[in-house]
């Protein structure tokens, strides 16, 4: 964009460095610890865990029932938890069916099942999505190129600091022969949030 834009980026970058240096001098942050924390965060920065959960639910009816009943107690079956962040969060998994569709938002800020999906995309945190998806969900889905059938009910779930939501998408047809790994590869982040079909 403009030179001003680059100037602002350089200014905030220098300001962040300044505050980080102050914190290091005060012994409040350890640069090596910051690097370790970032590496760990980025290592989990994909929706792969959420996709594994969905693939298991599609393949194992007992797991699906447990997941929809109490996701937090079902996740450890896959070696997963909602405790990857600063505090353990409640997770509710909401299931798409042939008559009902679910979409996830955090109208107040950016609450998101980060432990399973990694960092959230910018659109999820935008005022545009947060303000509009609760008023006109079908219109917003259309902006994602997703035309929801008019006979499907739609529910928008508004996350909070303590409670997060993830969508269990409908299993695509013609996937009967696929194993869990192949099924997981079909699952997208947008599908796990309900702004796309899988």
């Amino acid at each position: 964009m403009s030179g001003d834009h680059h100037g602002e980026a350089a200014a905030i970058s220098a300001h962040v460095r300044h505050v980080e240096t102050l914190l290091e001098q005060r012994g409040l942050v350890d640069p090596q610890e910051l690097d370790r924390a970032l590496t760990a965060f980025l290592a989990g920065s994909s929706p792969a865990s959420g996709a594994r959960v969905v693939a298991r639910a599609w393949s194992d009816e007992g797991f699906r029932t447990r997941l929809l009943g109490d996701a937090n107690t079902a996740l450890p079956e896959l070696g997963l938890s909602m405790g990857g962040g600063l505090q353990e969060q409640r997770l509710k998994v909401v299931e798409n069916t042939d008559s009902a569709h679910n979409v996830v938002v955090c109208t107040l800020c950016s609450c998101y099942p980060i432990a399973l999906l990694g960092p959230s995309p910018t659109w999820y945190k935008s005022e545009a999505y947060r303000s509009r998806v609760v008023r006109d969900p079908r219109g917003v889905l259309r902006e994602f190129g997703f035309e929801l059938a008019p006979d499907l009910d739609i529910t928008v779930w508004d996350a909070s600091a303590e409670s997060r939501y993830m969508v269990l998408p409908r299993r695509p047809g013609g996937t009967e022969g696929l194993d869990e790994k192949q099924l997981a590869a079909l699952v997208t982040r947008n599908g796990l949030l309900g702004v796309a079909a899988v």
Binding site: A9, L28, L42, G118, W123
Partner: peptide
């Protein structure tokens, strides 16, 4: 309207990653 960024990275600049890590540490 909502705008998607394709293949969006977790952070768009190094300083964002530092702010994220600093906040977590504090």
């Amino acid at each position: 309207p909502v705008e998607q960024e394709l293949d969006e990275p977790p952070f768009h600049a190094d300083w964002e990653a530092h702010v994220f890590a600093m906040n977590r540490a504090l």
